[in-house]
Computed example of a mutant assay.
Amino acid sequence: MLWAIARGYGLCDADAGDVVQTVWLRLVERLDGLRDPSAVGGWLATTARRESTRLAARRGRDLPPSVAPPAAEPGPPPDQVVVARERVGQVAAALSALPRRCQTLLRLVAQAACHAELAAALRIPVGSVGPTRARCLATLRRLVG
C-alpha cells in the first residue's frame, strides 16, 4: 500500500523507497503511544501521502494530474480493511509482548541502524546482532501466529 501511494505521486523507485522507509520509521517512533491499533492502516496511508507530497515538493516536482486529493482517493474494500486492522493489532500486541531488548533492537533495525550502531546501543558484540535479530523476529512471528 505504501509503495503504491508513493508511486502514485510520481516518485521514482528510490524516492518511493525513502517515503516507505520514513513512514515505517515514523510508526516505530510512535509505537509506544499507539492507542488504537485498528487506526494504524489509515495513519500509515495518510503519512505516506504527506511524505510523498513533501518529497515531491522538495525535489521541485509538480504532482502528476493522476494524483487525486486524499479525500477523493478510493479506499480498499471493507473486508480488506478489517483484515488489515486485525493484523496490525496482532503485530502491535506481539511487539509489546516482546522483551524490552527485542523491542529496542527491532526499533533500531527499522531506523536502518548498522550492525555497529545496534551492537553499541544493545551493548553486545557486533557478531551477535544478526543472530539476536533473528531470534527476536522468530519470537515475533510466533506471537503473531
Rank of each mutant, 00 (worst) to 15 (best):
L143E: 11
P78H: 01
V67Y: 10
L11W: 00
R30G: 00
L55M: 07
Q80K: 12
Q103V: 03
P125N: 13
T132P: 02
C136S: 05
V67W: 15
A14W: 14
S66C: 10
R100H: 07
Q80H: 15
R101L: 05
L44Y: 04
W3L: 12
T132G: 04
P78G: 09
Q90R: 05
V23T: 04
D79R: 14
L143W: 10
G75P: 01
V144T: 04
P37G: 07
R141C: 06
Y9R: 03
C12Y: 03
A138L: 15
G130Y: 11
A116Q: 11
A110C: 13
L55F: 10
E51Y: 02
Q90W: 01
A68H: 11
R59P: 08
C114W: 06
R26W: 14
C12N: 15
V82Q: 15
V28E: 08
A48H: 00
P77L: 11
V23R: 00
Q21I: 00
P78I: 09
L11R: 03
D13G: 00
Y9C: 14
D62E: 12
C102F: 09
E29G: 00
A71S: 07
G8Q: 03
T104K: 03
S52M: 06
V28K: 05
T53H: 10
G33H: 14
L55I: 02
G41N: 15
L98Y: 01
A120L: 06
A45K: 04
G10C: 11
W24Y: 15
A71M: 12
V82C: 10
V83N: 06
P131Y: 07
T104S: 13
G130T: 11
L55R: 10
P125V: 03
R141L: 12
S38F: 13
A68P: 02
V28D: 13
V40S: 07
L34P: 01
V144C: 10
D36E: 15
M1G: 15
E29D: 12
E117Q: 14
G130S: 14
R61N: 06
G145D: 03
P77G: 05
A92S: 02
R49H: 15
E86F: 08
A113F: 12
G17Q: 02
L137C: 07
R59W: 09
